[in-house]
Simulated scan of single mutants.
Amino acid sequence: MRGARIVQKVSSTRGFARVAPYVVPALDRAVHRLTRGKVLLSAQLLPGVVLTSTGARSGQRRRTPLACMPEEGGRGWILVGSNFGRPGHPAWSHNLLVHPEAEINFKGRDIPVTARLLEGEERAAAWKAVLAFWPPYAAYQARVDREIRVFRLLPR
Rank of each mutant, 00 (worst) to 15 (best):
A17W: 13
R18S: 06
R18P: 03
V19R: 04
A20I: 06
A20Y: 13
P21L: 03
P21S: 08
V23S: 03
V23H: 04
V24I: 15
P25S: 03
P25W: 07
L27S: 05
L27P: 02
R29N: 07
L34C: 04
R36M: 09
K38V: 11
L40A: 09
L40S: 09
L41C: 11
L41K: 03
S42Q: 15
A43S: 15
A43V: 12
A43W: 01
L45E: 04
L45R: 04
L45H: 10
L46G: 01
T52Y: 03
T54Y: 11
T54Q: 12
T54F: 09
A56Y: 10
A56H: 13
R57W: 08
R57I: 11
S58F: 00
S58A: 05
S58E: 07
S58V: 05
G59N: 07
Q60Y: 04
R61P: 10
R61A: 14
R62P: 01
R63Y: 13
R63F: 14
T64A: 07
T64W: 09
T64V: 10
L66A: 10
L66K: 07
A67H: 05
C68D: 06
E71Y: 00
E72C: 00
E72A: 15
G73H: 00
G73E: 06
R75V: 06
G76K: 09
I78T: 12
L79G: 00
G81Q: 02
S82M: 10
N83L: 14
F84A: 07
G85D: 01
G85C: 02
P87N: 08
P87T: 09
P87I: 08
H89K: 03
H89I: 04
H89L: 08
H89C: 05
P90H: 09
A91R: 10
W92Y: 13
N95C: 03
L96V: 05
L96R: 00
L97I: 02
L97Y: 02
V98S: 10
H99I: 00
P100C: 11
E101A: 14
E101T: 09
E103S: 12
E103K: 01
I104D: 04
I104G: 01
I104M: 00
N105S: 14
N105E: 15
N105L: 15
K107C: 12
G108I: 02
G108V: 01
G108H: 11
R109S: 12
R109T: 13
D110V: 13
D110R: 12
I111M: 11
I111H: 08
P112Q: 03
V113H: 06
T114H: 14
T114N: 05
T114L: 09
R116V: 08
R116S: 14
L117G: 05
L117V: 00
L118D: 01
E119M: 04
E119R: 13
G120C: 08
G120K: 00
G120H: 00
E121H: 14
E121M: 11
E121P: 09
E122T: 11
A124T: 06
A124K: 12
A125E: 15
W127P: 02
W127N: 01
K128Y: 10
A129Q: 14
L131F: 06
L131Y: 06
A132M: 09
F133I: 03
W134N: 06
W134G: 02
P135V: 00
P135E: 08
P136R: 09
Y137R: 01
A139C: 12
Y140N: 05
Q141I: 11
Q141Y: 11
R143I: 00
D145G: 15
R146H: 04
I148D: 01
R149K: 14
V150L: 04
V150E: 02
